[in-house]
Amino acid sequence: MSNRTPRLQERLTQHGVTRRQFLKFCGVMTATLALPAHYTGRIAKALLANPRPPVIWLEFQDCTGDTESFLRANQPGVDELLLDILSLDYHETIMAPAGDMTEVSLSETMTNFPGQYICVVEGSIPTAAGGIHCMIRGRTALSIAQEVCGNALATIALGTCAWDGGLAAALPNPTGAVGVRSAVPGLSTLISLPGCPANVVNLTATLVHFLTFNDWPATDSSGRPHFAYGEEIHEECERHDHYEEERFVLEWGDYGHRNGWCLFQMGCKGPETHHNCPTVKWNDGTCWPIAAGHGCVGCAESRFWDRMSPFYVPLDDD
């Protein structure tokens, strides 16, 4: 692992990211992690130290949505993340080798950094029929996950599919899809970041926490970090006053909809969903579903495809 101090600063400058912007990013990380503001400097110092932990990113029964979320990282952008803060050694969507040569990238990282690489898993793992519904290089996803996650420093299950089986596990779950915690039980460190897709800000914050404190953020009983999944969307929602005053959208495009009223009657599942969308938002912090006028579908909750649907039928009002 390299330790070239000036490189990240140089690259940020080359990409027009000023020190002020970089420190602003560190401030966003501090706030996202629910840390006091004085930790910003410590985070900046840790990132600039360039530890570059190796990362192996596995994709199984996925749609690549969480990778797309990752590719929307900004300031530092994904190129800085890929090349300077992390060493992304294996990722089938962006790596140069193909076919059997990918095995070389995977095995070199696992051999050179045993127990020191971070494994990110995207997508569910099928278990029906011996796991044949997802095969890579002639091996089942289950077999690959057990080997790669089993020898990792830590595994991050990115997205709802990797957490609890997600879309493929919706009834009737024809492929026996499960998340990492069921496919590879007993992992010493498994952080789960559900969301459909997961929010890149939460992935970045999780990695920044590790790089700064050499420890992972505190998680709940299902492995989700408190900083991202500790609050209900409803409690932080900017339309909460409308809910309290019973100003509800009743039809798409009606007066209430055009004036940003509460989407509860349109099926919003915000009151039963834990995620930090109202605070970190999406698309570089510019917007999120409810602000755009569509109710929350509960995409970070367990079995949401079955428990939060029908998506347009309101929750019981209690």
Partner: peptide, 24 residues
């Protein structure tokens, strides 16, 4: 080399939900 069976997940559900599944 990968199968999820999304066509098998859709029957019996509220039709207004179909786009959310299909999008994924």
């Amino acid at each position: 080399m990968m199968f999820r069976g999304i066509e098998l997940l859709l029957p019996g559900r509220d039709p207004r939900d179909a786009w959310v599944f299909t999008q994924r």
